[in-house]
Design a protein around this nucleic acid. Sequence first.
DNA 1: AAATTACATCAAATAATTTTGATGTTAGGA
DNA 2: TCCTAACATCAAAATTATTTGATGTAATTT
Lengths: 111, 111
Amino acid sequence: MKKEIPLLNNMNPAANTDFEKYEQKFKALADQQRLQIINILALKESVCVCDLTPIIDMPQSKLSYHLKILLEADLIQKEKRGTWNYYSLNVKELKGLLSDQLCCVFLPSCC
Amino acid sequence: MKKEIPLLNNMNPAANTDFEKYEQKFKALADQQRLQIINILALKESVCVCDLTPIIDMPQSKLSYHLKILLEADLIQKEKRGTWNYYSLNVKELKGLLSDQLCCVFLPSCC
DNA sequence: AAATTACATCAAATAATTTTGATGTTAGGA
DNA sequence: TCCTAACATCAAAATTATTTGATGTAATTT
């Protein structure tokens, strides 16, 4: 049961903006475990799930779930190479979302 | 049942950072209705709840609930004047969190 | 071809968040 | 003092998100 959020008057630059889109992206960011995943991806450039599992203390299906949420929010990307799935940050998207300050915190390679 | 998120190695700049803190802030942002509230506050500078209620289609207790979440995340501020409670954005905090691009979307006064 | 590795997906259980309507509190006015 | 307006808070109900363990699938190895 999705509720409609009424738009504001057209004096408002955000009137036509999709709050929904940002809701999804912030939801994806709003979890310590996913922030940690982002953080690891930022350090390692591109990582397969098999490398992630031992680092991050999480059952595999759970990790898969969280990766999917990040993927659907377009904050990370997936690339299949043989048997492996490599994940990497969508740095452009993240930079469009986060302040420089925050980028420095979570995406050390940015600084 | 809060789970501990294991810290990363100390090569990692975010190792000692409180993911918890950012989780809270992103959670506060991760809701269309709260984004709308932020958006209205950005337009109006400082608004009492009684002015907000007719604009935003929401029962009063619900509005109060969402304002509290934004307040606890330190994204907005509250000032009591007589019977009225005036809310305003914590622009500094928001700027420290959001990219310039996003600030422009949600906080039109920034651009 | 069978077995194994590296995942994704699913359904049920659990937990967290949001919504609602009722009630509480405080300040100001009659 | 009593009444009302402007909120906040509370507890129960409804909704949504997360966790878990099991199962499915595709690629690789043997």
